[in-house]
Design a protein around this nucleic acid. Sequence first.
DNA 1: ATTCTGACAGCAA
DNA 2: TTTGCTGCCAGAA
Length: 118
Amino acid sequence: MERRSSAPVTDNEGFFNRVYDVTRMIPRGRITSYGAIARYLGTAGSARMVGWALNSSHHSHGFIPAHRVVNRNGLLTGKRHFGNSSTMQQLLENEGFTVTDDKVLEFRERFWDPSVEL
DNA sequence: ATTCTGACAGCAA
DNA sequence: TTTGCTGCCAGAA
């Protein structure tokens, strides 16, 4: 069942699916962090779970912009989980980001906080 | 049921 | 400032 992108994510579904839902809501050209998603889901401190969930995101159908999720410093900590080591950076650059030394320079300006935007 | 692990975050040195 | 250790919680083995 598809969820409306404008509606907040409920906790009816499993944790992983909630992570996927939020991730799918990240607008193109914006970026967020694992911790921000964790806080929005009400499980602050479980940022590691967000990463774990995204690790299985490839298994999910549909497009999940996991490349728009980086750590709190704007570091591409999950680049290794994209087929090629440069895939994540490529995807971000395609959306207008500047990545230097695995770090997104526009992290602060284009930061998208679900607990604020949603 | 128990133990290990992780695409993090916070804080102490 | 950078480095390292600890807490976190939900899956996987």
